[in-house]
Structures are given as structure tokens and as C-alpha cells.
């Protein structure tokens, strides 16, 4: 059996530190998701308005955010605002800003998609049955939209968690950075630590995202 460098994790508080790093990444993504979901619902509703100005603006926002790699957005906010506006944003705050902007765009598009997927004959039937506009929205449109949206928004959470691995690149000390530190510190005593520690990080991310993905899939099948 080759030396896999897993014993490093059992030394001192290494495993706890690694989990602490994972928590930093999860905290950023959960905070961003918590802001993105309500903001995205608003954006999605705005996007269905027939007003050409709001349509153009929301469309522009969506396209700009979605065409750029998230890492580029992180660089723009982290390095760009320092230079242009003289702001000194911490890496963590920059990440939350970027992931919120991105999450809002993604969520907005999901909400818009779910709202326009309700066929027009349902509105007509509701009106023919004598429902008011408010009743149509709350009793007909909303229940169906929510059902369609919940699995998709849960998927957005896993995407957000995976994307937070990028914050390493703007100097936030998260799970990969802690992994690097552990490997460096034990370079002499366990030279193969890189294998075991990065494998552990891989599995940690998997364990964080997999149950959420499974839940989303279950709900999708259940509510189809």
C-alpha cells in the first residue's frame, strides 16, 4: 500500500481546521443564496413586465453577469473597486457581493422562466371562472411556479457552493487554502500529504453538495 498522506489529517487539529475552511466557503455561499433568492424573485417578476425600459435593463444586467466567468467578476470587484473608487473591500465581502449579483441574475432567470411557463389559457380559464387578478395569481399561478422553482433553486445552492471554491484566488482563507497550509507545514514529515489532503477536500465538497443535489432531484420527480 503506497503512502497516501492521509495520516496528516489526524495530526493536531488539522481535520478541524479543514472543516473550518469548508465552513468559510459554505458561509459565503449560504449568505449569498439568502440574499439572491428574494432579490432574484423580484428580478424575475420585473422581467415579466411588458415595460420596454425595465425589460431592456433587466436583460442587460442578466447578460453582463452571465457572460463573464465568476472569477473575472471577483477580480473586477476585488481589484477593480480598490483602484477606481479606493474602496478596501475584504476578500470575503467581495465574494458575497459577486455571488449575490450572480445568484440574483440566475434566480431571476429561473423565476422568469417559471412564470412564463404557465400557459395563457390558465389565466383565461381563471378569469372565465370569475377569479380576480389577485386570486388568479395566488391560487393558480403561484402554487405551480413555486413547485417548479424549488428544485431549481436548490440546484442553485449547490452551484453556489461549488463556485465559492474560487474565492481562494482572491486570497480568502477557505478550505483549499487551509489544505495548502497543512501540506506545506507537513512537507518533511509526510511528503505525500498533497494526495490525501486534496482527496479529502474533493470528498468534502462532494459530501456538501451531493445530498442537496439528491434532494433537488427527488423533489423534481415528486412534483413533475
Amino acid at each position: 500500500m503506497p503512502d497516501l498522506g492521509l495520516e496528516v489529517l489526524l495530526k493536531g487539529r488539522n481535520l478541524a481546521r479543514l472543516l473550518g475552511g469548508l465552513w468559510v466557503a459554505l458561509r459565503i455561499s449560504l449568505l449569498s443564496v439568502a440574499i439572491s433568492i428574494p432579490a432574484g424573485i423580484l428580478l424575475g417578476v420585473v422581467m415579466t413586465w411588458k415595460n420596454p425600459v425595465t425589460q431592456a435593463l433587466s436583460r442587460l444586467y442578466l447578460e453582463i453577469i452571465r457572460i463573464m466567468p465568476q472569477l473575472v467578476l471577483l477580480f473586477l470587484v476585488f481589484f477593480g473597486t480598490t483602484r477606481v473608487f479606493g474602496w478596501d473591500l475584504s476578500g470575503e465581502l467581495s465574494s458575497v457581493i459577486v455571488f449575490t449579483l450572480w445568484g440574483t441574475a440566475e434566480m431571476g432567470d429561473l423565476v422568469r422562466g417559471a412564470l412564463v411557463s404557465i400557459p395563457p389559457h390558465q389565466y383565461e380559464s381563471a378569469a372565465a371562472l370569475g377569479l380576480t387578478e389577485r386570486q388568479t395569481f395566488f391560487c393558480v399561478v403561484l402554487p405551480q411556479t413555486v413547485r417548479r422553482l424549488i428544485p431549481l433553486s436548490i440546484n442553485l445552492i449547490t452551484r453556489m457552493i461549488k463556485t465559492t471554491s474560487l474565492v481562494l484566488m482572491i486570497g480568502v482563507v477557505e478550505v483549499l487554502k487551509v489544505a495548502q497550509q497543512i501540506i506545506e507545514a507537513n512537507r518533511m514529515s509526510s511528503p505525500n500529504a498533497a494526495f490525501g489532503v486534496y482527496l479529502t477536500v474533493f470528498m468534502l465538497y462532494f459530501l456538501a453538495c451531493w445530498p442537496i443535489s439528491l434532494l433537488a432531484r427527488r423533489l423534481e420527480e415528486l412534483w413533475r
Binding site: L4, S165, L166, L176, A194, F195, Y198, V201, F206, S213
Partner: peptide, 23 residues
């Protein structure tokens, strides 16, 4: 498919580039 979809590319690359050479 499950392993690949539920982990970020950055972590996959770290494992491929820094982890595998140890073996």
C-alpha cells in the same frame, strides 16, 4: 457523474495537478 457534478473544477484540478504526482 455524481462525483464530477458535485465538486468544483478548481478542487478537481488541485487533486490532478498536486495530488496525483505523489502516486
Amino acid at each position: 457523474i455524481e462525483l464530477s457534478r458535485n465538486t468544483p473544477l478548481l478542487v478537481q484540478l488541485f487533486f490532478l495537478y498536486y495530488g496525483l504526482p505523489k502516486l
